[in-house]
Nucleic acid binder design. Structure first.
Lengths: 223, 223
DNA sequence: GTTAGACTGTAACATTTGTTACAAATTACG
DNA sequence: CGTAATTTGTAACAAATGTTACAGTCTAAC
């Protein structure tokens, strides 16, 4: 059976439909259909398989203490469920997974997926790239939270931009985007930038920032 | 050549010295020695290989804008360098890596390591477990930072403890540990817990917390 | 060029959290 | 038990950030 949607999956990058078909036929896999609203997995349940959404749409949702649920994210074809934690020690679903509409899921046991990876260099490489990129993204995000003040986050952000060593960088996003990235509000960020300019740490011209006091800037993220 | 220290590495879990020896001999690998203070890798440099510390000790350090360096972490045998981002898209060293003392490193090209994983189910499985656990840890940490107030973090923490559905949980760490986990100060956490008790959300008896107002608690982490 | 929409600067005030310090309570251990 | 060490509760004050609101500036599309 062929699943054209899979060739767009990061887990099967660079493989054609027929190749994927051939690879899948060498291991066990199954297709399951879920009707709208059906429960696909419960939070806390052990993860046994790689599950890829082939058609339809599913959502991850969490129940709060009163039992009310709130949506965390939608998962659309050709995304997979909890792919980043699949092989973690005692991996469990972090959320409930519910079908948004009639959906078709491809299910491959973890051990079959291991066989698949061992048998094809591209499948192995794709999964490793996927998960390493995820880890990279997460640890980058976490780094910013380790600076407790907005000044610290902004100073560190500036120093991470290309050209920081030259003492002149160009900010590549709006303040709104930047404030969301830092997890603060936009006016607070604007205030802090203004303060840093008044304190003589930087000079700002539109999106261009010059570093005036390297020592002072560095101190902001070394507490 | 045998490297007894590798059998303690999470990347070669469950393998004996002779097995590791045999596996390594099937691929290319090399050993390099670095003297105290020698530069092993520079921040921003592309990652070509898996590098495992066999003996000695190395450190990751970052240079600030003034050129002064600060230590980020020590990496001791049998840990590996940047193992979690190794296969990421355009993976680069996030920090400078310097030898703390005379050290011996095992170096395996990424493609050789791929071969190694494809050839042995345990090696593959170990690396996947390692990196998925890392991703799990990181996303767990990041989740807490998405709650902006201490009350939100604490309420969410409470709701994640075993037995939360019964309305009675036992906190498994000291306030000091918890405050570090949340990234806040200990007195601030204590104050917030006191406030939540006064507001009738919870009742606290030593390490045991009862939920008195599920709706109110849930609201704290749904803004 | 003009205009609508987005982006930025700024202010006053409220809220949250940090800081510091000390006392009370609990726990570990002899 | 009884003592020392750790953990917790609390207070007063300082600092940082959020909230809200509004005006000025830039930008893209017409």
């Amino acid at each position: 059976m062929r699943f054209p949607v899979l060739s767009n999956s990061p887990l099967f990058r660079g493989l054609g439909d027929e190749e994927i078909e051939k690879l899948l036929e060498a291991v066990n896999y199954r297709i399951r259909f879920f009707h709208t609203g059906a429960v696909i997995a419960l939070a806390g349940e052990e993860i046994h398989s790689l599950i890829i959404v082939l058609s339809g749409s599913v959502r991850g949702e969490m129940a709060d203490l009163t039992g009310r649920t709130m949506k965390i994210e939608d998962i659309n074809p050709p995304q997979a469920l909890a792919a980043a934690v699949l092989f973690g020690a005692g991996a469990r679903y972090p959320v409930n997974v519910i079908a948004n509409c009639d959906s078709e899921l491809l299910i491959i046991n973890k051990s079959d997926y291991l066989t698949l990876m061992a048998g094809d260099r591209r499948v192995l490489s794709s999964y490793l790239t996927f998960i390493c990129s995820k880890a990279q993204f997460l640890s980058g995000r976490l780094r910013f939270h380790s600076f407790h003040t907005i000044k610290g986050k902004f100073a560190h952000y500036l120093s991470s931009l290309p050209g920081a060593t030259s003492g002149r960088v160009v900010i590549d996003r709006t303040q709104q985007e930047l404030s969301e990235y830092f997890g603060v509000t936009r006016p607070s960020l604007a205030r802090v930038i203004g303060e840093m300019e008044h304190e003589g740490l930087i000079s700002v011209d539109h999106r261009e920032v010059r570093f005036l006091d390297l020592k002072g800037l560095s101190q902001l993220y070394e507490g």
